[in-house]
Amino acid sequence: MGRSVPTARQVLENLAEDLDRMASIMPQSQAAIMHDMVMMGRRHSAEISYSGVDPYTGFLISIIIDLYSRIREAEQ
């Protein structure tokens, strides 16, 4: 209500919905990976919203950060 443009969080939720739809026709193993990655992106919506960075770029960077964290954890 009263908003002229969607918030970064709304953009991210719409993107996540589109990606979930994409996952729905993928093989099950890939759909699970897709779901996991979408969750990685969504987890960082507050930071993306705060930064003012383009939400799509922020979403991608969030996934990379989480993947990098997992690689580091695995290495240790």
């Binding site: 002229s4 918030t7 969080r9 919203s49 705060y50 003012g52």
Partner: peptide, 10 residues
């Protein structure tokens, strides 16, 4: 507009 019309931090 995108950057300023952002609301509170959640």
């Amino acid at each position: 507009l995108l950057n300023t019309d952002s609301g509170g931090l959640v």
